[in-house]
């Protein structure tokens, strides 16, 4: 099994883009993250939906005490305004360190091992400097289901 069949092509997230734009691309293509390019076109890491949500909405102390929170919270009062503010933010403050990337020739089993090693649900695929797209755990599961269906 090769990765080509489950690759999801996407564009890059670029320096200065708004959170809104990255969310739109991710939702439209069904990927959880995009590789990030700085103003010089150099790869400098990635932005992910969970990373933006964590750093943009959730202070560490809330995460730490998540289980004791009640269902009524003062901080959700002006949630709509906060969402708008987050969407207008630049993504530059939410860039995570570069992930290990793979090539389009990488066998799926190796990709799965790398996903497991880095506790990730996605990997970026690059052939040299050329960006091919994202593979996700869901994509791998879908491919397995297809293989299973053909054998029946």
């Amino acid at each position: 099994m090769k990765l080509k069949k489950i690759l999801i092509p996407t564009t890059f997230a670029r320096e200065g883009m708004k959170v809104r734009e990255v969310f739109s691309i991710c939702v439209e293509t069904g990927v959880p993250a995009l590789p990030y390019l700085n103003s010089k076109g150099k790869r400098r890491g990635f932005v992910s939906l969970s990373g933006i949500m964590h750093h943009g909405c959730l202070p560490n102390y809330m995460v730490e005490l998540a289980t004791v929170l009640g269902d009524q919270l003062s901080c959700v009062k002006d949630a709509r305004t906060k969402v708008k503010e987050l969407m207008d933010h630049s993504i530059d403050g939410y860039v995570d360190k570069p992930l290990h990337s793979i090539t389009s020739e990488t066998p799926i089993i190796k990709a799965m091992a790398i996903l497991e090693k880095f506790h990730s649900s996605f990997l970026f695929v690059f052939d040299g400097e050329e960006y091919r797209g994202v593979i996700t755990a869901q994509g791998i599961a879908q491919r397995m289901l297809e293989i299973d269906a053909k054998q029946k």
């Binding site: 202070p59 560490n60 102390y61 809330m62 730490e64 005490l65 929170l69 919270l73 003062s74 901080c75």
Partner: peptide, 13 residues
Amino acid sequence: IVPVTLLITQELE
């Protein structure tokens, strides 16, 4: 204690 404090003061505004 600090995480509890920050959460409580956030809720108490």
